[in-house]
Nucleic acid binder design. Sequence first.
RNA 1: GCUCCUGUCGUCUAGCCUGGCCCAGGACACCGCCCUUUCACGGCGGCGACACGGGUUCAAAUCCCGUCGGGAGCGCCA
Length: 513
Amino acid sequence: MNKRNRESNNFKSFKGLTPRVRFAPSPTGYLHVGNARTALFNWLFARQKKGASILRVEDTDVERSQDKYEKKLREDLQWLGLAWDEGPESGGEYGPYRQSSRLDIYKKYTQKLLKNKRAYYCFCSKEELEKERETALAAGKMPIYSGKCRTIPPDKARERIKTGEEAAVRLKTPGKGTLEFNDLIRGELSFKLNLFGDPILVRPNGLPAYNYAVVIDDHLMHISHVIRGEDHIANTVRQILTYRALDFPIPQFAHLSMVMGEDNTRLSKRHGATAVDQFNKDGILPSSLFNYLALLGWSPPEGKEVLTRDEIIELFDIKKVSRSAAIFDYEKLSWLNRQHIKKLSPREKAEMAAPHLHKAGLLPDEMSESLWKWLEEAVDALIERVNKFADFPAAFSMLFDFAIDKMGAEEKEILQTECGRKVTLALEERLLDEAEFSYDVLSRISGDIKTETGCKGKDLFHPIRVALTGKVSGLALDKFILLVESGAGLDFPTPLKNCSARVSEIIKKIYGF
RNA sequence: GCUCCUGUCGUCUAGCCUGGCCCAGGACACCGCCCUUUCACGGCGGCGACACGGGUUCAAAUCCCGUCGGGAGCGCCA
């Protein structure tokens, strides 16, 4: 960040009004973290400034747009906690909010532009244009439309259309001079207009092109701040030219940097989980993703990074957003997720973990209240060892998997030592005398075992741990014993073995009697 | 190829506009120690960066010039 001037332009028409921002995705696929961040920054800006947020669906690409994607998009946004003041579902006074329902509106303005000679019909075929492009590229120039249809007189053009010829509508651009605009994030930006050809406003099929529909919609929806990805910087030039031709006031722009994958290329499926939906399925809390996405390119003034939605709304500052691309770091998201998980109540944690455990076949279809109680304790005990809720089935193997055949070498070795043998056998014997087993009982009998076997310290407790859990590491024994003993009486699809059953099994399988 | 954007620890960033408080601060990750009769959690500490080269200046991460790297755009896709 340097000397760039980030003073706001304060366009007359928006001065004093509350800001209005929009998120305008096209329903052609799942919501990606990159897009989600754009949505988030728009939403934060609106919330903080007490402005309005608008969701607009850009579905003019008939080939690729699908209703199911729009629905999924809205679900994902809602899951993230981004509710829009106006949109296809919520309505609003500047609708409709789907571009496919606004075709008549665009037509009206096209007629105006044609009449004012700010736009013209273009009869060039795709093939012709492609050839032009290739020649330009081969000559090392930027491929720009020659503008040859500009000179066709309007009445001639209308005649040709009447005879059934297909025509696009293009905007007449200056083709010289420079255009400057102030970007909220990047400062003053300047472009040479001879590098911009006349953009297509309307395709021959009558549908508006992106750059055209956006301008009309943003104006009609009274958008004051256009916050979007960096990939739109060049489009902004075309759009400002269109604003001018239409005599619309120009909004403020802010271009966000891209979100990259680990290899510093644009994020895609190749990089693993990048769809918002996937984080939901993985058991990442929406508040964690929200928090992480906000931190991607923005940092809170005090340096406190684990933040709630409300804190972020309060602290966020679009002018403090970084201008360089950021790499999506799953590790940090995981850490944030752990921080957010910690704030949940035991019941909330259990409820988040339950679907994953059920899916893994560890919980029955019907959950009794005693099962819920047990689950709360189990989840609470294991929560520190988990990044996301989808990790719970693996964490629960500590409790449910007591497979001696699959026991590790280190564990077997411990059981085969002299102390290992003596301690395990002594433990079984004592266990037979106890009606109920608990950590208190263990504390008591471990003293007896110590005297009896002469094994102490590591030699004593290591075998006990392995004999009980089947593992060298894991939960503290007090928690473990409590969960296993209380869970043994509960109705799990895979029964939970109690401590004495475990020790007996070890003795049978490892020592052979 | 051309145009635009961008470049501080491995990663996200603070600092840059208004040069000295910066032999660069925080967070994640990593490593070590402590806690714990295990592992994890937690606590403490460590490693680690101003892309490079010139210039201006008493003084440069900060200002200027150049080089190099990364990204994006160049559609009748959004």
